[in-house]
Design a binder for these strands. Structure first.
Lengths: 352, 352
DNA sequence: TTGAAAGCGCTAACAA
DNA sequence: TTGTTAGCGCTTTCAA
């Protein structure tokens, strides 16, 4: 009688033992499964699962734990995340949504996030929106579809459709949105602006102007409000956080308010735009006009003149945002945090 | 007789239909499953699955497809990635391993990768090794454990233990490793160096030196070899790709070879280190010594003097690496690629 | 302390 | 063309 398809535990006509249990096993050396580990340790898969669970020890005899551990190590066992995830409803990933990774303030934030989250056993899926709100909404949708356990978002603008009815733990970083209840981790812009104004006044400046970034960004608004609360100096809105937009806006400021002796810029690139406008107006920085930047991005200490700027601790922002997210995921209370920004004085500021 | 626990398809004593099938359903509004969609469309889950599979159409009657689609849309159905992954053995994620996200050459690469891979339906899990080989190996292990379908790695050094016996599709980007067979997507350093040398010779320079980055990096070696193939000028090895290391090495070069009129630096930050050393030696750039950088990172056009440099298309590197990975994942043949680097002439080079 | 059994949501093979 | 069945690998009751 020819042997038909495998029956468990019996011997076939050719004398070979069918070690295979009921169903046919995988044909080859894919990653070892819990069954393999359990078989090698001579226990049931469920026991192996319990033995390897570090979270709740003490449910398995120590000797058994050792045997299972040993088997797992020799086989190089790594639990299948898909299977585990299906069972536990936890994906082990969080989404990190950034507006533009090539904006120099963003990488240190992402790095800080990544550092903390890896350590907590979570993987970061990166999504770059290119400062596009629609794409931001799409990407957030994708991340939700992938069952991210949490989201850290640096939004493209103050109103973000993608975040309107977000239903997973979410933390904003760097930039806030209007009217939401999501926690935000950002720099203390108000104190940063105050430090800049105090520094310039200390040098003797009376006519201080402000060249902002685009008003669609919360950072612009926060810095502008702080500036207006402290001075009655003129402010000109820039179109973007770029050198060109900064140059354009600064040129307008200098034209309308020729007596201006100092400018606080909305960010460092805008500050470099101020340099351009100052030169174009046949003036010099810092001799005629002092400039203070914001962020302290790489190399602004190497430009001419080295830029005085309000340094923002972006790496810390990232770390803190990640910690806040972890807290939210644990349902611990965790609210917004404003991290201290500190003034770094270089050569772009001088007495008028 | 009191009604006992639910029996399928019957009416309970209180008159309420038990719509529930055999087993008790989820108690509440979690994400809708394929069962929900199928039920709503009046078909079997398997049919719904086929109807929603965009890859292989034509297996389901058009009318059914429409019904299922409609049901999926109204319910806001998104397939559970864990369940799908468990079944299909595809995780839908790739690992992106970078040495240091705050190194300005890295973000555009990651952005290029991310762009292409999202479009292909793959999510990027980011891992930053901090230029640490051991951490690199650990992180690659983690990504393997998470069943990444592929890996794009910018290795921390030319010998990378984590990549020794990698068994998933992998592409190197930016930096290569010794003796492997993994495809590498990088800039054509040889032609970049040649362009720099030709430019300097064209200006009349005879005594050209080279200040490198650390020899543990493939980029250093490739640029150095190209330099030595073209000139017999002196080369000094730097300790790192930093301003300080560049300054140290350049100082040595200028001391040992006082007649040097031009330096090709291993990267832009090293070039800025050369500026420092040149000033420290009471010389001026470009009047006494010309400097050429490598990479063209942000703001080197704003330093004093604006840096002449070999621009590397990092964003393209990332895109190309992602495309190469996709090809490898499809088992298409795809090998290394060297993308053109082009010289950007600014004010740090001048006739001697 | 361990084993047995069930099932997370999906898709592939087979049957009708 | 559609339905039935089974099972991916894991964890979690429940029972022994």
């Amino acid at each position: 009688m020819p042997s038909t398809s495998s029956t468990a535990g019996k011997t076939s006509s050719d004398g070979l033992e069918f070690a295979q249990p009921i169903a046919q096993r995988r044909n080859f050396p894919l990653a070892p499964t819990l069954r393999d580990v359990a078989a090698r340790a001579g226990v049931h898969p469920a026991t192996a699962s319990r033995a390897l669970d570090p979270a709740r020890p003490g449910r398995v005899a120590p000797a058994t734990v050792r045997r299972v551990r040993a088997a797992a190590v020799t086989l190089g066992y790594r639990p299948d995340p898909a299977a585990r995830s299906l069972r536990t409803r936890r994906s082990g990933i969080v989404g990190v949504v950034v507006p533009d990774l090539t904006n120099p303030v963003v990488p240190p934030i992402v790095r800080g996030i990544e550092r903390i989250l890896w350590r907590a056993g979570l993987a970061c899926v990166l999504a770059d929106t290119g400062e596009d709100l629609q794409r931001e909404a799409e990407l957030i949708g994708e991340l939700r579809a992938r069952r991210c356990e949490g989201l850290i978002v640096a939004p493209a603008a103050r109103s973000s459709p993608g975040l309107d009815s977000i239903d997973i733990p979410t933390v904003l970083v760097l930039r806030g949105i209007d009217g939401g209840t999501l926690p935000l981790v950002a720099a203390n812009d108000e104190r940063g602006v105050r430090a800049a104004v105090a520094h310039l006044r200390g040098l003797g400046h009376k006519r201080i102007g402000h060249v902002t970034g685009p008003p669609s960004m919360s950072t612009t608004v926060r810095r502008l409000r702080a500036f207006q609360a402290l001075t009655d100096g003129p402010a000109v809105l820039g179109e973007a956080f770029t050198v060109d937009a900064g140059a354009l806006a600064a040129a307008r400021l200098l034209r309308r308010h020729p007596g201006t002796t100092a400018i606080i810029a909305g960010c460092d690139t805008v500050a470099l735009g101020c340099y351009v406008a100052i030169s174009a107006a046949a003036l010099r920085c810092p001799d005629d006009v002092s400039v203070v930047g914001f962020n302290d991005i790489p190399l602004v200490d190497k430009v001419q003149p080295p830029l005085t700027t309000v340094a923002v601790p972006h790496y810390d922002l990232g770390q803190q945002a990640a910690r806040t997210l972890l807290a939210r995921m644990r349902r611990d209370p965790a609210g917004s945090a404003l991290l201290p920004a500190r003034l770094v004085v270089r050569d772009s500021t001088r007495a008028p």
